[in-house]
Amino acid sequence: MSISYHPPASDALALDVRGLSVEFPTRKGVLTALSEVSLTIRRGEILGVVGESGAGKSMTGMAVLGLLEPPGRVASGEIRIGGRRTDNLSEAEMASIRGSMVGAIFQDPLTSLNPLFSVGQQLIETIRLHSSLSRAEARARAVELLKQVGIPGAEERIDHYPHQFSGGMRQRVVIALALAGNPQLIIADEPTTALDVSIQAQITALLRKLCREHGTGVMLVTHDMGVIAETADRVAVMYAGRVIEIGPVEEVLSRPKHPYTRGLMGSIPALGARVERLAQIDGAMPRLNAIPTGCAFNPRCLEAGSRCRNVRPVMVAEGQGSVACLVHDGGVQ
């Protein structure tokens, strides 16, 4: 394993993932869902993670949370949250990390909240799990959290049940719950996908504001480039379980280095531009049991050469980011 991409090892990192591989043992053999994923998130920084469905975006988030669905397991690599190694912890130890060091926001706020408990009960439960506050103190903190996420009339709303909130308000409650234990890192898995477009902007703005104020690192998993452009500081592009490009958001969006990233950018319609047909990348992402040798993208890549079919590209520094592409690492032939 040669890692050309060396992030600074520092406690200032909210998340430090190195060489993470996740495997699913099945009857037909072991499927590698994530392969050698490395990425870092600083405190107060938002890292967007993009890719097609099945690229491993959500899987990376779940692995960090220690919530991989069995039989999935971390096969190799290291995960550090706030400087503490977490990939080798027991389920009980991991449970005390979740909520206090790493929080989560999931896609659908309707199904994320337990319908039979008021939002106050769920907030107070979470706060008390991660602090020694009394019930009354926890309630005061819960009201404060609801105010922070912009819920009007928080003192009354705290006793309401999830079904009494609108979709956007519910996602605010979910964000309040994610923040309740003061985590250093939040995994936001498609946090705006289930919301109206008008609400999406409010939620991403709120997320951005809160992560700046609290110094919380955010892993923003999404397939929506627009959300990335508005919200993220840096962006990681994933393909077939690997990170293929990572860098500052302006650089990746305006000067993508990987052919796949360029293809992704090309497929976004520009507002006001009249085009007959959107650009698309021919072919489909390979299934986990049929990932090509060499570069996983080579069958679809317009620039691929003979070397791409045999040599697996590794991340190399390029500009302010890094890219895993032989075009930038010794040529394709």
Partner: peptide, 11 residues
Amino acid sequence: DFIKFARARGV
């Protein structure tokens, strides 16, 4: 989902 989310909250 809410069970998964509760786990993510540290329950």
